[in-house]
Design a binder for these strands. Structure first.
Lengths: 219, 219
DNA sequence: GACTCTATCTCGGTA
DNA sequence: TACCGAGGTAGAGTC
């Protein structure tokens, strides 16, 4: 990884066009060829960047970075204040716990948590507008489409509505009920779900996880 | 801006839980208090980060970063390889051209690009569920609600559907047609739009811009 | 402050 | 490879 601090202007042409007037900034060049230009603020997002793979043509006063997608970044360097490199080596990577996928896993393993008698038909049940998280049958044998979210928002209701629209066109399934499952459901999502006849179910990830065997835990 | 290169492990507890095994990484501390931990690859996104405002408790071997939202980042430092600071100063900021707003501007200036005979009624036409990008009348005088996107996805179709639902409740307008306009329209969005009776129209920003007067260009 | 929507989103999974 | 959905989305604008 190479870290350059320089007074520079930057121009990007690609998915849009963008320009940075002259100022002192940090230029980060990673081993995989990605380039990011940072100001001293604005959280982790750089002002400008190029994703790999890149080709860099480095003149003393002008770096021209291009990639196969036809994007181009031009850095005009007025003054270099620092230029150092470090060998970082590979990274073992990040391990996450508590995302939607884990919640979906737990619910697929035991859908009766959602309601007594629920049985799983399939995870990621396909429709023309995308896969439903869980397709279940209730105790009476009726189909239920389940959308799993970490946080239930109107988005999730819309998504589930789309699926139901298409699932209910299938004579083998209809009528299909909808159920939005999340650790937390926003009031607006609840109102919309009610209006659409979709049920809401709040679950607790850590509680579910506590009742499950060790092999579903990451750490 | 402070740049530390160190062999470290990192643990985050907050909106989820995440863990990084020991490796050499770059830690970027910005003037606004944001912290980002980078590996030597993976585009511009850091492995782990904390957005401001943060409180940092810096022991030699363990940094504890907390914020008011109850998130916590713990960096255990095994070895510091480099630790430097640079004064960057403020940044004049980025100027962009080619985002959705510009596309909307061009189409508002000449809606006949969408279809022969289209006239603009209003930009950002208000409804109870938010403003429609463009409200037009076609050659026959019928109302058309236009949603403008850079990339047309199912989201955009949902958004337009909501507007149409409310617009069609207005006797002065109904019946209102829907049109999704974008530089690129995804297959799923097309399927959904068809199912809802919404038309799709692909436009080219740079071509439109080329036919427009100078004053709509930023640089 | 909460809500809404855009984004050069990034990233991972999958067909 | 392209498409699709999740994200600790971040960030900007509006109310």
């Amino acid at each position: 990884m190479r870290i350059v601090v320089a007074r520079c202007t930057v121009d990007y042409e690609g998915r849009l066009a963008a320009h940075l007037p002259e100022a002192v900034r940090l230029i980060m060049v990673k081993a995989d060829g990605s380039i990011a230009i940072h100001a001293d603020g604005g959280a982790y997002k750089p002002l400008n960047w190029m994703n790999p793979p890149n080709t860099v043509n480095e003149d003393p006063e002008c770096w021209t970075v291009t990639n196969p997608r036809g994007e181009k970044l031009v850095i005009n360097i007025a003054e270099i204040l620092s230029d150092v490199s470090h060998e970082l080596g590979g990274d073992p990577g990040l391990r996450k716990d508590g995302v939607e996928a884990h919640l979906q896993e737990l619910l697929a393993a035991d859908p009766s948590v959602l309601e007594e008698g629920y049985r799983l038909v399939r995870r990621e049940y396909p429709t023309a507008v995308g896969p439903v998280d869980l397709l279940c049958r209730d105790a009476a044998g009726a189909a239920v489409a389940v959308e799993v979210k970490r946080r239930g928002e109107t988005n999730g209701v819309e998504q589930l509505s789309r699926y139901l629209e298409f699932l209910n066109a299938d004579p083998a399934l209809q009528p299909v009920q909808g159920m939005l499952v999340a650790e937390e459901i926003k009031p607006q999502a609840r109102v919309l779900a009610d209006a659409r006849g979709i049920r809401c179910k709040v679950v607790d990830y850590s509680a579910l996880r506590g009742t499950k065997p060790e092999d579903l835990r990451l750490f």
